[in-house]
Design a protein around this nucleic acid. Structure first.
Lengths: 257, 257
DNA sequence: TCAAAAGTGTTTCCGTTACACCCATGG
DNA sequence: CCATGGGTGTAACGGAAACACTTTTGA
């Protein structure tokens, strides 16, 4: 069977090129239509969804591996990517009916053992511009698409918990780091970025206070008007001042009280 | 040679019982005499110091492995232990003159390769009561002792960076989580705990404001007087209300603004 | 001309910081 | 009896939250 042959070959390649026992998982957040989304993969021939993951090459930095994996799933580079926790419970595989899923995939038992043996996994979360991403499945999966954050189904492994913790970390991060550079188009309005914040935080914010705070950070530059299709008064357009933005990210203390 | 035989045996045991490619490192902080200390290990026959580490058994939870390693170095259980970052740079071994150190240890090259091949390492930091800890070296080391936080020598691997980041995380943590349960004796005075905070943060705090804040957390219970040897007015003794303390730790939001 | 959205500034509030006085104890 | 440290309360400050009016635009 052609598929199994390819599979065995892939596993061989894994064994020679990648570190055993360690993997990484990605919670890739996108923003569209006032909704926060997460990128999920569906395994071939099943209805089982999970987070995209990756492995680390023997001579590759962990962070580089995370960026590489992110690019393989979305086509994107130079994205906000942040490690948030490392998961190492043995139990995180119980939620996952190994035999069942593997059987659906048509995998013999010895391969199953190899493939889903217990790993320690480093969790990263990423923020990407929804429109620019090209969701791409990998060898084991046949579908890769965005899910609304509040409509995520029960996932394989401990991936529901991962998303929960990633989101929690992201929300905390939002309070002391600027976010938005990779989530918004080059030019955007104040209502745009406010909606982004409100979506991530899951709560509404005062228009005036938000603007005051955001401008206070000193990382935005205002352009001219915009009228496009929008009815009503045309809001200003803004753009991130890349240099100041990076500086703020590096300092990281900027927004702490 | 007896030593090399034991070593080979140990490595065999590692290979069969522990996960490859993943390890963990511990920044164990202790508090004594108004000084914050870190526990370091010195390799046999060398002047090279490093953080204590550990490995994960195949069927062992990551966190359990961390607690086990902590206990092996200090004899302590039920300690504040917190994951803070996972280190995965290949470069983190450059600082480390492999051949040199290994030669001092009398290790043949093939063992060297096995022993210090590149790992991804999960960093934990712990807070322990200085007086209760019994620093214990492991097979590779002959000395295990406390170092003042501001007198740490250049360490092997990337362990200086690890300590730096651990301390940074600890300080941040201090602002939104109660700390002290494992660092102070059962009964302690307000000046005691204030000194602990000042030591960790590296700055002095206002006596009155500190007390106000600390009591506001509602995790302390006041006992009676204390006079012991101390001259001057006898300060009250306090004790942590274990239940409320645990609750605060679990909520973790308690001290956020 | 009206409804809906955007631009802008002021007041209020609350938590943090700064600060002072009295009390107890051992030398 | 006094120097040193501990107990306690209040005033000042500043950043965040609450809040209102005017302007623009398409329908």
């Amino acid at each position: 069977m052609e598929y199994q042959k390819a599979l065995r070959q892939l596993i061989e390649e894994f064994k020679t090129n990648f570190m055993p026992s360690v993997s990484l998982d990605l919670a890739i957040f996108g923003f569209h239509d006032g909704q926060l989304k997460v990128l999920l993969l569906r395994w071939k021939g099943t209805d089982d969804w999970c987070l995209p993951g990756g492995r680390i090459r023997h001579e590759e930095n962990l962070e580089v591996a995370a960026y590489r994996s992110l690019q393989q799933r979305t086509g994107l580079r130079e994205i906000f990517l942040q490690q948030f926790h490392t998961f190492g419970d043995v139990m995180r595989y119980t939620n996952f009916s190994k035999q069942e899923t593997m059987a659906k995939l048509g995998l013999p038992e010895d391969i199953t053992e190899e493939l889903v043996s217990r790993d320690v996994s480093v969790g990263y979360y990423a923020l990407v511009e929804f429109a620019n991403a090209v969701p791409t499945p990998d060898f084991f999966t046949e579908e890769c698409r965005w899910w609304d954050i509040d409509q995520i189904p029960p996932l394989l492994f401990d991936h529901n918990d991962m998303i929960k913790l990633a989101l929690k970390t992201l929300r905390r991060q939002l309070s002391y780091q600027p976010i938005g550079y990779n989530l918004l188009p080059d030019k955007f309005t104040m209502p745009d970025i406010q909606q982004l914040y409100e979506t991530i935080l899951g709560q509404t914010l005062d228009r005036r206070n938000f603007q005051k705070r955001m401008l206070g950070y000193n990382i935005l530059e205002r352009l001219e008007e915009r009228k496009t299709g929008g009815a009503h008064k045309a809001p200003y357009l803004y753009r991130f001042d890349k240099e100041k933005y990076e500086k703020a990210l590096a300092e990281e203390i900027l927004f702490v009280g």
